[in-house]
Design a protein around this nucleic acid. Structure first.
Lengths: 371, 371
DNA sequence: CGATAGACTGCAAACGATTGCAAAAACGCT
DNA sequence: AGCGTTTTTGCAATCGTTTGCAGTCTATCG
């Protein structure tokens, strides 16, 4: 059906081996025949068959990216970045969706190595450590965003402690003292790490950590909504909420809208991870950007490195952290006269709680206005 | 490194060919050896090498899906659906991102056929018709969502005329007479088709088509915002806006928020295509669902059919339309006393324009309330 | 009991490339 | 011209499967 190396060789009246060497540029051919063959190959429209080549060389020019889903905006950018980078290098990306399900992950992993992929970037569920470890002997692997504790795989992580710290500090600098935190399950790394960053920022500012302001759980939007309600219903509700969990943001926003709470006037809102519509939302939502772009790029870098190094790309470093970045938009507001410079102690809280009460009255006011 | 067929054969003291036949179930083996071999294969952890098999059979068990991006929610669900379906059948999905760029599309297409993919589902840019046509000789291809007029490829399309009709009719049934339309470029199929559905619904209801209410353009969120402003600034602004373009929705929402227009009280809003956060938005946004799920499923069905049929899966049908569906949420409201049954003529418009004026006064009211 | 059909099995040639090894050609030098 | 070197080429094996063909076995029947 298609033009094979043999055809090219015949047309050029040389042997297949010469043709192969000339076209792959494996040194041992004369300049002249090399050029002649490339020309003939082009004329004939020859395209090497990666399958046949792969059989011999054990390589497939296929690199897989295994993520949990495509709904998550971070995974989207990562997929796009990885695809773009790999393509430029002549690799095809095999994008797989594991749904954060260990069984699916395991299945996919085996099919992938069957297909003799040349490399793998994976967001591990954390439940297939032994399998991953075994595969790592055959294929260069880089873990992304999540660590699999059962392995010693090279891992590219977001700097969640720093991100959460950055976000919390931002709110503190704006004068907030009661900052609600809606955060992921504490049995996930990101859940723990984000909480720790939050705590550190508070400690550093000499603000006592109030446990009633910290809500953690296995998140879906519904839970986000519940948590947000709990925070707002507190006798002394927070003046700012830091939603440090991707899924929870939707629920929180809904509750805020339902109660007609004005952002940032009645409440400051800061979210973790960007979504394309956040900057179109009104008010545009300030975020801590986990650096999905950089994460993906670094992961690709590391993977390529290992692929080049043929088995011992092992530089001693096991873990890379990509810095988070604060993106200020319009959902956080400075409250009352915060000390302009770092002098004097933070004020006490009574006026803040009155601000929250204002929100309650505002709620009924706007409701009646609508009728 | 890994267990090959030869190893299995040796362990079972049979020839490679027998092993092959036993394991692939190609008839000609005795029940007994077949079972024995499957057992041994399992014990040894034998996994057939798809590359070697592919070389011989010309198949790769790889099916590619080529979409424009992953930001578009429709493409996300399609990717997830296709992946899930294919996986269940033992295929791996090769997800490629073409960025709606003809050159990239062309590149990707050639690499894909090089890799001897078994099938291809593509959202064509429409600029590589000849190439696609040529490839279709080697590989079963199904076009998705967009048609490539230069080819006669089997195509699975959303029923945009019907969707737009459905949406518009819904608004009309709610009593709206002045319905703004923000729609895509008229040189795209979907742009034209959505406009036509809108017009048909109006005609059918005996409502004159007012050109000033129809805004079309090459859309990005910014343009969506501009269009939305234009509509609202009209001397007689619409009482409902149908944003029939995915990208434009963000911009429109922002303008609505900026002007403090209450949905659905001051303005009804209906959008085309769903986004995961639409139902969490407050008010939850009513949409016309283009049926991404069904589209993807049908595309897979058709592709599989062609793949089975080995070249002549050609059933005569060239084009499939997947019905759109109206999903009512909270962003559209019945206005004034619309005729409860289909009797009498629609009322005239003065009261409606007063509704729009109300929105203007509301705007200043809420603004002052905030200060 | 021997012939013969039928069911299994094995040999060996593909598939399209890469690659070690040896032969051939080209070159430089005396 | 003859010889040793170096470069360039071709032969043939190989990667792990599948598959046509021929050979082997078993069973059945005359």
């Amino acid at each position: 059906m298609s033009v094979t190396l043999k055809d090219v060789a015949q047309a050029a009246r040389v042997s297949v081996s010469t043709a192969s060497r000339a076209l792959t540029g494996t040194g041992l051919t004369s300049e002249r025949t090399q050029q002649r063959l490339t020309r003939i190959a082009r004329e004939l429209g020859y395209r090497p068959n990666p399958i046949a080549r792969g059989l011999k060389t054990g390589q497939s020019r296929l690199v897989a990216l295994l993520v949990h889903n495509l709904t998550n905006a971070s995974f989207q950018v990562m997929a796009e970045v990885v695809q773009a980078r790999l393509k430029a290098l002549g690799y095809q990306m095999l994008l797989c969706i594991g749904g954060d399900d260990p069984e699916q992950e395991s299945d996919t992993l085996t099919t992938l190595v069957d297909h003799r992929i040349d490399g793998l970037i994976v967001v591990p569920t954390g439940k297939n450590g032994t399998q991953l470890k075994a595969l790592a002997k055959d294929v260069p692997i880089v873990c992304l965003v999540r660590r699999d504790d059962a392995t010693d795989l090279e891992t590219v992580l977001a700097d969640d402690p720093q991100g959460a710290y950055l976000g919390t500090r931002h709110l503190i600098e704006l004068g907030h003292r009661r900052i609600g935190l809606i955060v992921g399950r504490q049995d996930t790394t990101s859940g723990r790490e984000r909480l720790s960053g939050y705590v550190r920022a508070l400690r550093e500012a000499g603000i006592p950590v109030d446990d009633t302001l910290i809500l953690a759980g296995h998140f879906v939007p519904e839970t986000g909504a519940t948590c947000c309600r709990k925070l707002l219903d507190l006798p002394r509700p927070p003046s700012a909420i830091f939603v440090a969990n991707h899924e929870a943001t939707l629920g929180a926003l809904r509750v805020i809208a339902e109660r007609n709470i004005a952002i940032p006037d009645d409440l400051s809102l800061l979210c973790y991870e960007d979504m394309p519509w956040f900057e179109w939302h009104r008010p545009a939502i300030s975020i801590v950007d986990n650096g999905a772009h950089d994460l993906a790029n670094l992961a690709v870098d590391r993977l390529l490195h290992r692929m080049d190094a043929k088995g011992n790309g092992n530089d001693g470093v096991r873990e890379y952290r990509v810095g988070a970045r604060l993106v200020q938009r319009d959902s956080c507001r400075r409250i009352e006269a915060a000390p302009p410079a770092r002098s004097g102690k933070p004020r006490s809280s009574p006026s803040r709680s009155s601000a929250s009460k204002l929100s309650a009255s505002k709620l009924s006011a706007s409701k009646s206005a609508k009728v």
